[in-house]
Design a protein around this nucleic acid. Structure first.
Length: 378
RNA sequence: CCUGCGGUGGCCGAAUAGUUAGGCAACAGACUGUAAAUCUGUCCAAAGUAGGUGCAAGUCCUACCCGCAGGACCA
């Protein structure tokens, strides 16, 4: 595989690469590519964490990158998720999250054997100088900037937070250095943490990231598109200037389960949620169903997607590109209901390997425990 | 540690001590070949905790817990 081919595979369908030049340099320097993506153990993975990101990881594995899924138990603890106890979080990280990621990776067509898993607790125990890196990152980042970056933990600036939350961005950056990974990967909402890591990369002395020649380098950041949630935005129609912010704020939410499809949802749940989704006819600026079709179904360039329709609505349609589908949607040749049905069935089928993987009793039990810990209080 | 303000349903948010606020959300129907919007209807309660005063306490008093703001301390 040529450098160009690798870059193409590594960066395809991403919303942002920081930066392509650095990526090219990294590859050309002959430095082995080491990737990481971190997850909190905060509930069930949805289509974003459990499928879209897995597609990208599959690309990376195919491009010869060593891929690591970081199970961020300390970050989860800092964020007071689940029952707030580090022991529970640590255990479910192993019993649930790692297994869930394997399930998602299978659904994305990959072999879980290709993935590495590292849990935060183990990383910190094995790197006694980890905390020195946390200090160095902190010394090179202003308090205001840390405060602004807590959105990476799902918090808003000005929200009631305790001081521990400020450790979160510093630790996330330090994780990258301790893991010695040069491709850092996440959804767009994590870009603040990655930029902090890049801005401090050349300044730190403990665990600096090095290339093959032993020179300090910045990690390259790969950012996925954030899939839209299924709910109607609070203001509709959306003012043009706010479109970007609204889209980010309208992501799938674990606290509003009907805005998300989780990778273990039953076929009935998938069909119900999709059917209830916000989907204005002919509207493409904010349309979760189209968004999902674009970023999931048409992820691969050679996709062929057939929409079954009753004869009275014109019979079946087959698309080989998202642009064709979007065009027909805009001109209202393709009705939302027909698209919804097809997308739902695609998800039912695609997620089947994940559901099957979690029929195994031990995993099923862990899933039930996660559900009991994250169930909305009534 | 001190002072002040606050703590009401899943969320926001009212009520001179005297018996159902309201809104959002949710749910169900109607209308749409989906959803949304719009109608119609439904369901939901509690008072941070523990005591006290009163015929009667969300409302007054005390203590404690939590949050916010400020202050004190800083040899």
């Amino acid at each position: 595989m040529t450098t160009e081919e690798r870059i193409k595979l590594i960066t395809r369908n991403l919303e942002e690469v920081l930066t392509e030049e650095n990526l090219k340099e990294l590859i050309e320097s002959g430095t082995p590519l080491r990737h990481y993506i971190g997850f909190e153990i905060s509930g069930k993975p949805h289509l974003g964490s459990g499928l879209a990101l897995m597609y990208k990881i599959k690309d990376l594995v195919d491009a010869g990158v060593e891929c690591t899924i970081f199970v961020a138990d300390w970050h989860t603890w800092i964020n007071k998720k689940l029952d707030g106890k580090i022991e529970t979080i640590r255990r479910l990280g192993r019993q649930f999250w790692i297994e869930a990621m394997k399930a998602g990776y299978k659904a994305a067509g990959g072999d879980p054997e290709d993935l590495h898993f590292v849990q935060g607790t183990d990383l910190y125990r094995n790197h006694p100088d980890y905390w020195a890196t946390v200090v160095e990152v902190s010394q090179n980042t202003s308090l205001n900037r840390m405060l602004r970056s807590i959105s990476i933990a799902g918090r808003q600036e000005g929200e009631n937070v305790d001081f521990a939350i400020l450790l979160y961005p510093a630790m996330q950056a330090a994780d990258i250095f301790a893991l010695q990974v040069n491709l850092v990967h996440a959804g767009m909402e994590q870009r603040k943490a990655h930029v902090i890591a890049q801005d401090t990369a050349l300044k730190i002395e403990t665990n600096p990231l090095l290339n093959k020649e032993g020179r300090k380098i910045k990690p390259v950041a790969l950012h996925n598109h954030i899939l839209l949630g299924l709910a109607k935005p609070p203001v509709w129609p959306i003012p043009e200037e706010n479109l970007r912010d609204i889209k980010i704020s309208m992501k799938m939410s674990k606290s509003k389960p009907d805005t998300a499809v989780f990778i273990f949802d039953s076929p009935e749940e998938i069909r119900r949620k999709i059917n209830n989704a916000f989907a204005p006819e002919g509207e493409v600026k904010f349309n979760p169903i189209l968004d999902w079709a674009k970023h999931l179904i048409f992820y691969y360039p050679d996709t062929s997607f057939t929409i079954q329709r009753e004869e009275r609505w014109g019979g079946d349609l087959t698309y080989t590109s998202y642009d064709d589908l979007e065009h027909d949607y805009i001109v209202k040749k393709l009705h939302p209901q027909d698209l919804k049905k097809a997308v739902a069935e695609w998800l039912v089928k695609t997620l089947q390997p994940a559901r099957e993987y979690f029929e195994e009793p031990q995993r099923k039990k862990a899933l039930e425990e996660i559900e009991s810990l994250t169930a909305p209080k009534i």
